[in-house]
Computed example of a mutant assay.
Amino acid sequence: MHKPSRPLGSPDTYNDRIRIVLVETSHSGNIGAVARAMKNMGLGNLWMVNPRSFPDETSYARAAGASDVLDTATVVGSLDEALADCVLVMGTSARGRKVPWPVMPPDQAATAAASHCGQGTVALVFGRENHGLSNDELQRCHYHIHIPSNPDYSSLNLAMAVQVMCYELRMNYLKGLETDARRPYLEPIAQPGDAGWDVAPASVGDVEGFFGHLQQVLEEIDFHRRDKPRQLMARLRRLFQRAKLDQMEVNILRGVLSAVQKTAGASGVEQSTSDTGPQAPEQDQGKSHV
């Protein structure tokens, strides 16, 4: 029916002890999508309680490269079997109950899972596509997990709900790797100087050289006049400083300015005040003397 894939390898204690439990899943495609969501986030411990159809071609087709999660999945006949050896059980719930139960959002649930997995297996239980977990099944959970979706359209696809929780588990796991080489992947890459940026930040001297070159070109093409400077250069300086240029970007901009000078010189273009017509307000017309 399918080609066996490589085993998951040797997952560490955290990932191995997080058990995703699907209860009476109706659509085998959802099982494959769940396997994909799990493997995306480094998880591989999948249990199923009475799935309608598994294994089959549809589940493996939807797994899209996560067939190893399906190969090692455990199928049992009851929820009791899936939870018997667990130290903590959390079930997803989209609706309120007559008897209030401890409820956590996904990020707090991930933290709770991390704090207990050192003691043993932690189960995250997901219910049926059409009506979720029954009241009896939810009462077997220590905590309920509520994903705060749009109240006007709160029903999540099974694999989407699993993906939300697997993502939170992954983030919690990575945040705990303070000295691990994978830790930097959590840090943003937003500007030169950040780990992962490809070019060093431009120095103050490089940027000042660019500003001088820019003003020179704007004067040469009669866009900027020293006798009526207004706030043009101040605003352009603010713009480019806000951009936090790197060395390559400064070189590119200087190259553009040199090309403008070369082209303007070759064409013999010499603008004057009379050529541009009436001067428009600074904010209303970009091609004006400011």
Rank of each mutant, 00 (worst) to 15 (best):
P281W: 02
G118K: 12
Q279F: 04
M41R: 01
Y153C: 07
I18N: 01
A33H: 04
D198M: 12
E57I: 02
P281S: 08
D275L: 01
F54E: 06
F210G: 00
T273I: 12
T74H: 01
W47V: 08
A84T: 13
D152I: 04
A84V: 11
Q215K: 14
L232R: 09
P105M: 13
S134N: 03
P106Y: 11
V49Y: 05
V207L: 07
P106H: 04
D180S: 15
G255L: 06
P7T: 15
Y167P: 04
Q119V: 09
V260M: 10
A161S: 15
A73H: 05
H146I: 05
P4Q: 09
R254T: 03
A234D: 12
A109W: 04
T263E: 10
A202N: 03
R6P: 00
L253M: 00
R235C: 00
E187I: 05
A266E: 14
G65E: 07
D12C: 07
P102C: 05
Q279W: 08
R19K: 01
I252Y: 01
A259N: 08
R95Y: 10
L177R: 14
Q279R: 15
A190M: 15
V122P: 01
R97T: 14
P7K: 10
D16H: 11
S53R: 11
Q241K: 13
N135E: 14
T276G: 07
N30V: 03
R182I: 13
R140Y: 09
M90R: 05
Q191N: 11
P55M: 08
A200R: 15
M48V: 03
